[in-house]
Amino acid sequence: MLKEATRESYGKALAEFAEKYDLYVLDADLSEATKTKIFAQKYPERFIDCGIAEANMVSVAAGLAASGKTVFASSFAMFLAGRAFEQVRNSIGYPHLNVKLGATHAGLSVGEDGATHQCNEDIALMRTIPGMVVLNPADPVEARLAVKAAIEHDGPVYLRFGRMPIEQILPDDYKFEIGKGTVLKDGTDVAVIATGLMVGEALKAAEMLEQKSISAAVINISSIKPLDKKLILEYSIRCGALVTSEEHSIIGGLGSAVCEAVSEAAPCPVIRHGVEDMFGKSGAAQKVLDYYKLNAEGIVQKVLEAVSLKK
């Protein structure tokens, strides 16, 4: 099985799909880190370095898209969704332009760079923009497919990638579709709805829960917006308790999106597992994740809470 950071899968996918699609890729002096360099080396004439100026880069991308081009603009999640939020909203979101935001180094797994670079707020920010698609792939296989889906989608897409190498958990022939969740393991007592690198942890947690005679379903929600409400409601009704898990603040991300969906149609207890209302800190990526309990053990704990709340 493959093990690589989803940023790596992103850079490779850009280079791969640029053969078939007329893509332009922008970066803000981070191509080495975002891995758009893989594309730049193969297609230098279609790579535009904007220097350390994300606000300008995002609006330049809008201008290129307004001229008919399919554009990827890349930087760290912090600077793309954070610093350039208002440019994303007004230059790209409002005119619904065909710009794909390739955000790498999302979440705590940035590791050593610490809190200033660990963006745990990007999903919350991006999903409030009307018409914005928000994708957070679970592994290298899905990251590649998400890039392809973004290219084929007409309109703005926010893609969230990580820095830390992660294991492939999905089969090579995995089907990815914007707006669709996938049941990776079925269960009846509780459903763990996970996104990004927490999907792999959720699968491990489900195995640990088997030992405790708790049958947990695991659902991969890589398409946070549009959200597969139908699937989520189905499991809300079937299991009567949900746990969401994400490498993102528990405020505004997948957990919030799931709560919004179920509270309006099929309410049940939902426990949100993710980064509590606090900043991250420096450390080796896996150590930081463990410190904040963003691992299988953390999920198991939340599942036990959720199950105890069932009527």
Binding site: V58, S59, V60, G63, A65, A66, S67
Partner: peptide, 12 residues
Amino acid sequence: QGISAACGIALA
């Protein structure tokens, strides 16, 4: 923001 978009259009 408009001037940046204009740069994008000119670059295109």
